[in-house]
């Protein structure tokens, strides 16, 4: 086999797969979002933007990502550093921390619903401790910020591990010599973290952030379980248009909005966390 054609042959199945199951459906969705019986139209985007819940859903999605992702970055870096420093039991710790990854997001939502609902664990605990006189309904439309916090907690619990796994692998790639050299020159732990480890971790951090942020904009099942219709998000509205309102055009328009946000943030992280050519390990 010719050495020059082999790589392309090996890439062919994956490329075909992507074309059939990603590019083709994407073209169909884009077509659906921009056309009606008469041809090209922006009508579906107008319908989408005119609906009173669209701005609410848009900002809820953004704020959720903004609240969840930074916490996850800090948590996953801390956890990754802890795991790498461990002498024994490292694998067991990693397994335990990644258990939530194995649970579907809807199941995760239901677990947290069992904690927060009126007949849930939190109410029983507070009642048992004598803090409250009767069970309260935390997840009501009257205080959506509690629903927001519950969703943020569930998301942090569920999806921090995906960043952790990437960062643990990334930390393993950094040669120990840099850290030791900095230590010899008298750099404190804090300085070594900021000036040595984090800059060298940039490629993994970039991958982890892109993956996590894209997932954050697609948040759906956890919100559906905890918030129902009280806290609309973009993905929930997409579902509603497609299946409740039977309007695939507006659903496609919403899906394109989510895609546009995801692409914008991917480009942002690619640019901000890029590693200059000369600085690559």
């Amino acid at each position: 086999m010719d050495n020059r054609t082999l790589p392309y042959l090996l890439l062919l199945p994956a490329t075909l797969f992507l074309c059939v199951f990603f590019l083709y459906p994407f073209a169909l969705v884009a077509w659906q979002a921009f056309t009606n019986e008469a041809g090209f139209t922006l009508e579906h985007f107008r319908t989408m933007a005119d609906h009173w819940k669209f701005p609410i859903a848009f900002w809820n999605t953004m704020l959720l990502a903004l609240a969840v992702v930074p916490v996850q970055v800090v948590l996953s870096i801390t956890m990754a550093m802890m795991v790498t420093r461990m002498q024994r039991g490292r694998d067991i710790m990693l397994y335990i921390w990644t258990i939530p990854l194995g649970i579907s997001d809807l199941a995760a939502g239901i677990i947290w619903l069992a904690i927060f609902e009126q007949t849930g664990f939190l109410n029983s605990m507070l009642y048992g401790l004598g803090v409250i006189e009767q069970p309260t309904n935390f997840l009501s439309y009257q205080n959506t910020w509690v629903i927001f916090i519950a969703i943020a907690l569930a998301e942090i619990w569920r999806a921090t591990a995906i960043m952790l796994v990437i960062l643990v692998a990334g930390l393993g790639l950094i040669p120990k010599e840099y850290d030791e050299a900095a230590e010899v020159f008298g750099a404190s732990r804090w300085q070594r973290l900021w000036k040595v480890t984090l800059p060298l971790l940039r490629p993994s951090l970039q991958t982890a952030l892109i993956l996590r942020v894209i997932l954050a904009f697609e948040v759906f099942a956890v919100v559906a379980a905890l918030g129902g219709t009280s806290l609309p998000v973009l993905m929930g509205e997409t579902y509603n248009y497609q299946f409740e309102l039977q309007d695939g055009h507006v659903a496609a328009a919403l899906a394109l909005v989510i895609l546009a946000i995801s692409i914008a943030f991917t480009l942002f992280f690619l640019r901000v966390l890029r590693v200059p050519k000369g600085a690559q390990i």
Partner: peptide, 14 residues
């Protein structure tokens, strides 16, 4: 209806 709503369980939207 808005007046009557204050007597409902606030969780009832779900």
């Amino acid at each position: 209806f808005r007046e009557l709503w204050q007597y409902t369980n606030p969780g009832s939207t779900n």
